[in-house]
Design a protein around this nucleic acid. Sequence first.
DNA 1: TTCGAAGTGGGGAATTGTGGGGTAACAATT
DNA 2: AATTGTTACCCCACAATTCCCCACTTCGAA
Lengths: 151, 151
Amino acid sequence: MISFSGTDLLTMDTKGRVAVPARYRQPLSELCGARLKITVPAKPTDRLLVLYPLPEWEHVQAQLKALPSTGPYEFLKRRIVGHAKDIELDKQGRMLVPPELRDAAQLDQRIAIVGQINKLEIWSEPLYRAAMAPEQVSAEDLEAALAEVSL
Amino acid sequence: MISFSGTDLLTMDTKGRVAVPARYRQPLSELCGARLKITVPAKPTDRLLVLYPLPEWEHVQAQLKALPSTGPYEFLKRRIVGHAKDIELDKQGRMLVPPELRDAAQLDQRIAIVGQINKLEIWSEPLYRAAMAPEQVSAEDLEAALAEVSL
DNA sequence: TTCGAAGTGGGGAATTGTGGGGTAACAATT
DNA sequence: AATTGTTACCCCACAATTCCCCACTTCGAA
């Protein structure tokens, strides 16, 4: 299984195309013919996109499909599945980000692609910087979280 | 089996025609000759329509048929089956939405077509946006729901 | 310095979404 | 039964987007 990590700063051109970092291309091609799924994250206030290799997406979708169609479950399923679109890469290794998702994540020219183990996150670079600022998390919460892992 | 996902923002013209997103057309044609069933959702307060490929509809109908004819079951069956109409596509890949269903879902010009795995949802775009707004679900409920899946 | 790989940009053809006219089918009314 | 009006379905046409190809440039490694 492929594992994503690290951040790449790139630019989205006027047609909405973004290069997938070269180091992922061959693994993706072998894993699933570079067939991907792009969608929104679970929390409706988060402004970013998530990109799954198709096999990984199948796993996500199977979980969502099993949820009841009530309250927050229905919302979650409708949101995530309802935004998920197929992505393939062009001969230059770029993906075309669908317009609805572009503005759902407020993407403009400067993009950050962030590896997160089983998926890639696609951020507007300014929003990513803001989200990573130290004041975005309280020191106490961070301490508490740290207590649960050994790094 | 075909799997629907992703949102398409489209317009319904003055004749009540809506284009089925092109990426679904060939799969639908192969699966069932693009014969579909359109009806209302289970909850009478939801303002949207649901669109099933015929084989999928057969499955839904079989479940409804097995229900007892009492109380809420009868209501459900009467509502869903009673509103269901056949849909075919014209040569341009558009469906004609029956007038009763158009105003049951308060459709006007701007439409959102939302893939939900085994069916498509048809929304008025403004109503869809409202339904997907973050304040439609409490952060706590969403957290709880998220605890049951790994994305 | 040269080479290759990676990221970026753009031209042009094909596809997709949209609008509208014309005609056939159907229903309702006279 | 004839007429009118409405609806549905065919065709064509236009505009925007997407897709495919080629090319430039930058950067790091040999």
